[in-house]
Amino acid sequence: METILLPHLGQYPLQVGLFLDVQNARYLRQQLLDGNTEFEYAFLDAAVLLSREHVLAACFRAINDILQGRMKSKNVHSEIVFSLSPNNNISECFRRFGVGETTKNIVAIKVDNNASQIQEHLQNHVQGQIVPFTDETLASLRDEARVRKAYKVDSSSNEEAEAFIIGSMALKGS
């Protein structure tokens, strides 16, 4: 697990963990659907994530939008998933970027500063191997075809495409 402080939003620390080979994605998804308040996380499907920057851009937008009174979904964690999407369709965005029944690798994010408690809770409930949240690992887990489809780009592996994707996320809803 890693604690990330976003510049300018240091009051809202992010606890981020990357889990490989998760066995109980179905269970985690069900907790979210049930609205279990102990599972207030943003669970992202690592296959559609490009880099740390990509994920953090979504976190920044979500937290900032809430501070400005522009929340579109029900809490900060769903807002993070929503911010990854280039369009305003909430259910589509959960299908594309959130944890699904068969998701193998998951990035879990919680906006909170109680690092040890969150790590313990996640390790108890996510059946997977926790690894450092790095660009290299994310690149190795990426599903190019799904990224291309989600963001309507020709390629997802170059820097230009990533910059375009982050820009599209920033401009969503304008």
Binding site: A57, R61, N64, Q68, A163, I166, G167, A170, L171, S174
Partner: peptide, 10 residues
Amino acid sequence: PAVLGAGWEE
């Protein structure tokens, strides 16, 4: 240069 974020209301 890439756009990293925008706040058009602000």
